[in-house]
């Protein structure tokens, strides 16, 4: 929801980034305020995942210019784990499988690092188990997933739900969901959307990267941005997503079309 005078959580200015010397992000600017939900759409390869990974601090991407401030702090100076602890969360487009690391241990270690950072009490295995049972309900996940290795052998939908479970535990200020809706059947989509809605409050914000209007039926974005060639080329309200669904991206991404709108 758009709230007058609410705090700017994330402020990105003229961000450029490259991978192995190839520029991918070519000047992204975006402001996100508390309470808002932003959708980022755009064709394959336009830089959406790159943008999300740069926000999370992936070491493969070199930031070559611009700035990112998160709750007033220079995010680019923080290590990935510090970003996570101050409240940035990225639900990955392709969550990794980590054989041998128990999902439960992983969740507990992650949860406790954040608790420690906040100066709050770390939970022992017993208390954590209670907490995680509650959160499992949000994503309607079976407790048996906790005893398996992180994402190992999980179906696509199960991996996505595991990402939302992590989000539910970590309660981020800014959640970036990179195509969390892709590859989900309608039931899983509702579960994920419902989970995200439950976790959205006036104090935090969400960036949804998606290709489909479908998700936006369940989670209403306040802004829809279109990314193309490493830039945000258009921004509109939720009706823009509908228009994109109908007309494709060409009309906003064609150079002349873009010119015309400026």
């Amino acid at each position: 929801m758009i709230v007058e005078n609410s705090e700017v959580i994330l402020s990105v200015k003229d961000l450029t980034a490259s991978v192995e010397g190839t520029p991918i992000l070519k000047g992204v600017s975006l402001d996100v305020k508390a309470g808002e939900i932003h959708a980022i759409m755009g064709p394959n390869g336009s830089g959406k995942s790159t943008f999300s990974k740069v926000l999370a601090g992936h070491p493969s991407y070199e930031v070559t210019g611009g700035e990112i401030r998160f709750k007033g702090e220079n995010l680019l100076e923080l290590e990935p784990e510090e970003r996570a602890r101050t409240g940035v969360f990225l639900a990955f487009q392709y969550p990794l499988e980590i054989p041998g690391v128990s999902n439960l241990d992983f969740l507990r270690v992650a949860y406790n690092s954040r608790q420690k950072h906040k100066g709050l009490e770390e939970l022992d295995a017993f208390d954590f188990d209670e907490l995680v049972q509650e959160k499992l309900d949000i994503v309607k996940m079976n407790a048996s997933f906790l005893n398996r290795s992180v994402n190992e052998g999980f179906s696509g939908g199960e991996k996505k739900r595991n990402e939302i479970l992590q989000m539910a535990l970590l309660e981020p200020t800014l959640a970036i969901l990179d195509e969390t809706d892709s590859g989900l059947d309608i039931d899983a989509l509702k579960i994920v959307a419902n989970g995200v809605t439950q976790l959205t409050t006036p104090e935090n914000a969400v960036i949804l990267i998606t290709h489909y209007q479908r998700l936006l039926n369940y989670i209403q974005p306040d802004y829809v941005h279109v990314m193309e060639g490493g830039r945000i080329v258009t921004t509109g309200g939720k009706e823009l997503a509908l228009e994109l669904e109908e007309r494709g991206y060409e009309w906003v991404t064609e150079p002349e079309a873009t010119e015309a709108r400026v």
């Binding site: 601090g57 070491p59 290590e79 990935p80 784990e81 602890r85 969550p95 980590i98 270690v109 690092s113």
Partner: peptide
């Protein structure tokens, strides 16, 4: 490196 990053992105130090 991606596995390390995945864990870091959840607040676990490198």
């Amino acid at each position: 490196a991606d596995e390390v990053f995945y864990l870091q992105s959840r607040g676990i130090d490198a």
